[in-house]
Write a protein that binds this DNA or RNA. Structure first.
Lengths: 117, 117
DNA sequence: GTCGTACATCGCCGATTAACGATGATATTG
DNA sequence: CAATATCATCGTTAATCGGCGATGTACGAC
């Protein structure tokens, strides 16, 4: 399935942006992940996958939730996959998606900040 | 300065995506914020602003950090502003930017997740 | 084998975007 | 006042993106 390896380990990169500036080398990978979430449909897809009971969802349950064609949903799922936010797994006729929780946690940590007052 | 009000209160919206699916009405605003961070230059700008000593940075200190023209940096700052991630403030000749920490915290919370193992 | 279903990929098109140079607005200085 | 500096806006261009229909691939049923 040609999983493309992330250049940077999501667990180690990076310090919260309120603590230190993101190094240029890391900015690309981080921005790619945020960019993948920067579409309403993809954000909903990601949240449906991440919050799914049992930790995974069949594409057949995702597609009918939107007023979009199959190829379009497939396209968005591919973007999420290539960003390393989700993983897919074909079992028989159906394809199942699950969230990469470590990646989500890393992104959350990057945005974490002490809120004043 | 025509600050455009967010449709949804960043402090109340939303539950972590690993907990519940993002409502369609909220997906747009959330995705817009992530989209703004989905560019390497903007992510670096945001991190430079958020981590700045004193909580704010002059544009004059941001522009020379990139191999880009002034208008291009101005454009990226505008995107960050319209996404509600930063606020600007002109004082004399210079314009100062500071991060909207509440918004960053809200986005961090949305991505927060319990990591297994 | 032939069908029908479930997704992915391909190719195309209209809309959006990042980048630039030129121009404009605002503030300080002489 | 004129001149300079900072930053935003305007207008253009090349590239990217989201959407679709058509086609391809993998699987189960027959």
């Amino acid at each position: 399935m040609s999983k493309r390896l992330p250049v940077l380990d999501p667990a180690t990169c990076c310090a919260p942006i309120a603590t230190a500036a993101v190094p240029a080398a890391a900015a690309g990978d981080l921005a790619a992940a945020f960019k993948a979430m920067g579409d309403p449909v993809r954000l909903q897809l990601l949240s449906m996958i991440a919050s799914a009971d049992g930790g995974e969802v069949c594409v057949c349950d995702l597609t009918p939730a939107f007023d979009l064609t199959g190829p379009t949903i497939s396209h968005h799922l591919r973007v999420l996959r290539e960003a390393g936010l989700v993983d897919s797994d074909r079992r028989g006729t159906w394809v199942w998606y699950r969230a990469n929780r470590a990646k989500l946690a890393a992104l959350s940590a990057v945005l974490d900040v002490a809120v004043p007052g």
